[in-house]
Design a protein around this nucleic acid. Sequence first.
DNA 1: TGGCATGTTGGCGA
DNA 2: CTCGCCAACATGCC
Length: 258
Amino acid sequence: MPELPDLENFSRNLHKNFAGKKLVKLKLSKAARLNVSAVVLKKKLVSQKLIKVYREGKELRFVFSNKTIMGIHLMLRGRFYQFSGENIPKHSLAEFFFQGGQNFALTDFQRNARITIDPPETSVPDALSKVVNERFWKEQLLSKAAIKNLLLDQHIVRGIGNAYADEILWKAGISPFSIANKIPSAKIKKLSAAVKTVLNRAIKEIKKTDPDIIGGEIRSFLQIHNSSKKKDPSGNTILQKSVGGRKTYYTDEQQLFR
DNA sequence: TGGCATGTTGGCGA
DNA sequence: CTCGCCAACATGCC
């Protein structure tokens, strides 16, 4: 559920709360999805100091003092919880115990969250990376796919999810059903700017609403992808359509290019 | 109460 | 090959 702006706040807060502390104990549920064995994972991390937490796409990265990087992808339902002592939250997949007694757990009732040791390098840029600019989008939008599907494609750009794809396309004034290679140059420029402004604004809004957030999601400020709203800020009726099993919110003001 | 919401993967068919 | 769509994962929330 959480998307890039939520995850960005989680990473900053986990960094603030845990960076510099030594991991003294790690408990793993049998259900946890790992790319190495539980034994290897513990051997790599336990007794190391956590140096840094940051976000890459929809994944959080935890850097330890021996240079091991642990990636955590929350998938649909993963959540972080802080806890003290042994008050382990429900559906926990992994519990990270730190020196000083402040701990966090990764939970997921759906058991789909993933832990990856030393995640492979990728050339696919993060949505907020500098290289994701107007020229980048002009190079990428050459296919016949619907623009929304391209924004969601993590092989093109990492970090954009269902809700923010709708917000970005609304901000750019482009219909989500537009064919990518039919979008004119001036609109691609708008799209490129909208990616940054929508995501950066959301990071700030979430921080303002809950400065210490490490789990859950805040969506009340979304302009379009918001089932409690009937009209966009200009008074246009918000329309809904199911696309690929997920709901798309848009207005008729968004130009359709086909 | 029960339908909806979310990301990713892999498979199918046009 | 390209693209869209579906199922599966399993439960909390309004």
